[in-house]
Computed example of a mutant assay.
Amino acid sequence: MKRLGVETIVVTNAAGGLNPDYSVGDLVILNDHINLAGLAGIHPLRGPNADDFGTRFPALSDAYDLDLRRRAHQLWKSLDRGTESTRRLHEGVYAFVGGPSYETRAECRMLRSFGADVVGMSTVPEIIVARHCNIRVLALSLVTNNAVLEAGPRGDDIAIQGSSAQDLDKAIEKGKANHEEVLAAGQNAAADVQQLVGLLVRDVLSTDHVH
């Protein structure tokens, strides 16, 4: 994209909601991230540096463009979302994990304690490479499911003694992530996301004189 002259990118993802104030179907403008894979040494910029793209040690404190975030918030208010829509737009921190399994309850609590508002398995490596190339970034997460933060039932809990296998399955599966639920939430939010991105692109093209 850098070779083609791209100066700005908009990236989207589906994410689990860690912030208890978020609801399924809400959108989150990212303003920071926690790159757990990168902290463990799995990083897209490892190896010889391509100096014509960027510096060996790029800063990421400005990874999420403030001007683009400001515009997105402003444009959201002008969106025609219908009177019955309860979808909200937030701003928060994204935790990047490797996947493909969804996170455990303990992992969700850990990520929330780290300051993450949403968690997902994509986006951050691409954003790091884009910023290495000095490409501006706006990132949007759709909350497609609520991560389970409370601990699961204990095997020595008096309340479950004598319970049937069916009742035990219901107890342990409460809040379990469901891929079909994720896909459905994405389909329901598609129109709002398309509207917002379309307005943003037109706004950037009309004011920044880019092509």
Score class of each variant (00 low, 15 high):
residue 60 L to V: 11
residue 60 L to F: 14
residue 104 T to C: 10
residue 211 H to D: 12
residue 13 N to W: 01
residue 154 R to S: 09
residue 103 E to M: 04
residue 109 R to W: 05
residue 71 R to T: 10
residue 126 E to Y: 05
residue 111 L to K: 02
residue 162 G to E: 01
residue 208 D to T: 10
residue 96 F to L: 07
residue 46 R to I: 08
residue 149 L to T: 04
residue 177 A to C: 01
residue 206 S to V: 03
residue 116 A to P: 14
residue 20 P to L: 07
residue 5 G to K: 09
residue 156 D to I: 08
residue 1 M to G: 10
residue 74 Q to D: 14
residue 109 R to L: 00
residue 26 D to Y: 00
residue 48 P to N: 11
residue 16 G to D: 04
residue 164 S to E: 08
residue 172 I to L: 14
residue 45 L to N: 05
residue 71 R to C: 05
residue 104 T to M: 06
residue 105 R to K: 11
residue 200 L to E: 01
residue 192 D to W: 00
residue 25 G to V: 00
residue 60 L to S: 09
residue 46 R to M: 13
residue 210 V to R: 15
residue 122 S to F: 09
residue 111 L to S: 01
residue 110 M to G: 00
residue 25 G to E: 01
residue 187 Q to V: 14
residue 137 V to M: 06
residue 30 L to G: 00
residue 51 D to H: 14
residue 71 R to S: 09
residue 66 L to N: 13
residue 30 L to N: 04
residue 162 G to Y: 05
residue 48 P to W: 02
residue 86 T to K: 15
residue 201 V to R: 02
residue 57 F to T: 00
residue 131 R to T: 00
residue 149 L to W: 10
residue 112 R to V: 04
residue 144 T to P: 08
residue 110 M to N: 03
residue 135 I to V: 11
residue 155 G to E: 10
residue 77 K to G: 08
residue 110 M to I: 11
residue 52 D to L: 10
residue 107 E to D: 01
residue 123 T to E: 03
residue 39 L to W: 13
residue 36 L to P: 08
residue 2 K to G: 01
residue 69 R to K: 12
residue 150 E to N: 08
residue 10 V to F: 12
residue 194 Q to Y: 06
residue 55 T to G: 11
residue 180 E to L: 12
residue 71 R to Q: 13
residue 142 L to Y: 03
residue 161 Q to L: 02
residue 76 W to R: 01
residue 185 A to D: 06
residue 210 V to N: 08
residue 76 W to K: 00
residue 62 D to C: 03
residue 43 H to N: 15
residue 36 L to E: 01
residue 41 G to L: 06
residue 196 L to D: 04
residue 114 F to A: 11
residue 144 T to S: 12
residue 139 A to W: 09
residue 191 A to T: 07
residue 187 Q to P: 02
residue 20 P to C: 04
residue 20 P to T: 09
residue 151 A to N: 13
residue 115 G to C: 04
residue 47 G to W: 06
residue 144 T to Q: 02
residue 115 G to D: 04
residue 65 D to A: 06
residue 79 L to A: 13
residue 178 N to M: 14
residue 176 K to R: 14
residue 204 V to E: 13
residue 4 L to E: 15
residue 206 S to R: 15
residue 98 G to N: 12
residue 21 D to H: 12
residue 172 I to W: 14
residue 208 D to E: 15
residue 190 A to R: 13
residue 195 Q to H: 00
residue 114 F to T: 03
residue 175 G to L: 01
residue 56 R to G: 05
residue 125 P to G: 07
residue 54 G to L: 06
residue 110 M to Q: 09
residue 24 V to W: 00
residue 92 G to L: 04
residue 6 V to A: 13
residue 209 H to D: 14
residue 192 D to N: 06
residue 27 L to S: 07
residue 80 D to E: 14
residue 132 H to I: 05
residue 77 K to C: 12
residue 210 V to I: 15
residue 83 T to P: 11
residue 104 T to H: 10
residue 77 K to W: 11
residue 113 S to A: 14
residue 150 E to Y: 11
residue 166 Q to D: 15
residue 96 F to P: 02
residue 45 L to W: 10
residue 121 M to A: 06
residue 84 E to F: 09
residue 101 S to H: 06
residue 90 H to Q: 05
residue 193 V to S: 03
residue 22 Y to D: 00
residue 69 R to S: 12
residue 107 E to Y: 03
residue 21 D to L: 12
residue 86 T to Q: 15
residue 155 G to Q: 10
residue 17 G to T: 10
residue 93 V to G: 05
residue 78 S to Q: 15
residue 44 P to D: 07
residue 22 Y to N: 03
residue 175 G to P: 08
residue 144 T to L: 07
residue 85 S to N: 11
